[in-house]
Amino acid sequence: MSIDQSTAAKVAKLARIKVEEDALPALAEEFNTILGFIEQLNEVDVEGVEPMTSVTPQRLARRVDEVTDGNQQDKVLANAPDAREGFFAVPKVVE
C-alpha cells in the first residue's frame, strides 16, 4: 500500500493537523517508510488468533453510578485558553 499526496492530505485532515501543501510530499514519503516497516506483519500467520484487548487478564472494575464530586467550575476552567462567564469560549460553530 503506497500513500500518495492526496491520502496524506486526507489523513492530516482527519487528524485535525494543518499541513501546508508543500509539506505533503515529504509527509507521504515518511508515511510510506513507516508503513513499509509495518507491512512485515503480513508475514505472520494470525489465523484464529484473538486480537488482544487487555494485556493482563482482568475484568474492568465497576462502581456504583453516582455523583462523587462536582462544584469545581473554577478548577475546570483554570487552564482554558479562553473562558468566559463560566464557559469555555470557542469560535462560532453555527451560522
Partner: peptide, 15 residues
C-alpha cells in the same frame, strides 16, 4: 482490520 487488528493479533502471539 489490515493494520490495527492484525497488530493486536500479533501482540497476542508475542505475549
Amino acid at each position: 482490520d489490515a493494520y490495527y487488528n492484525r497488530a493486536r493479533k500479533v501482540r497476542t502471539l508475542i505475549k
